[in-house]
Nucleic acid binder design. Structure first.
Lengths: 69, 69
DNA sequence: AATAAATGTAAAATATAATTTACACAAAGA
DNA sequence: TCTTTGTGTAAATTATATTTTACATTTATT
């Protein structure tokens, strides 16, 4: 399973920590970390919430990258 | 929660039944039905699998529509 | 070097996605 | 009419997403 570097870089572009995102979408820091780490299968609503916070779309963050395995 | 009519119509365009999709992505018919009905929060991997079967992207099927509540 | 902030990870508990089984109804064909 | 296919829904169970608590490491700052 590959890391989600798109998420990581989109977060960096907003200068937000994992905890910042977690608080913004109402989950724990560990959940955001796990998603970035790649060993995870989050729910679509959480993905959408994350995208909104980062001003990105689902395709931007979660499409294609997750499919190399 | 609104119904996912994009999924329903994309499925119709492929002339596939709920069970066809379910079998193709390895879930039960009830899961596909629940997603179309809207009272559901599927995992991203399932969403991606469904999109692949329908030759659509995440944005096509799961973006924006789910956000009108 | 000391303190704090950000990150990586793990185990046990909780919430919920997904399965299984089941029943009902409408439409289409034999 | 009878059977089949597709759909809508529900209750109980199972699988897994997410939380909680916790500890270690890195990086930046004082």
């Amino acid at each position: 399973m590959g890391k989600n570097l798109k998420l990581k870089s989109a977060r960096a572009a907003k200068d937000m920590s994992q905890k910042d995102i977690a608080d913004a979408v109402g989950v724990t820091r560990q959940t955001i970390n796990a998603i970035e780490s790649g060993d995870y299968n989050p729910t679509i609503n959480l993905c959408i919430a994350i995208c909104k916070v980062l001003d990105k779309t689902l395709n931007d963050i979660f499409w294609e990258d997750d499919r190399n395995e």
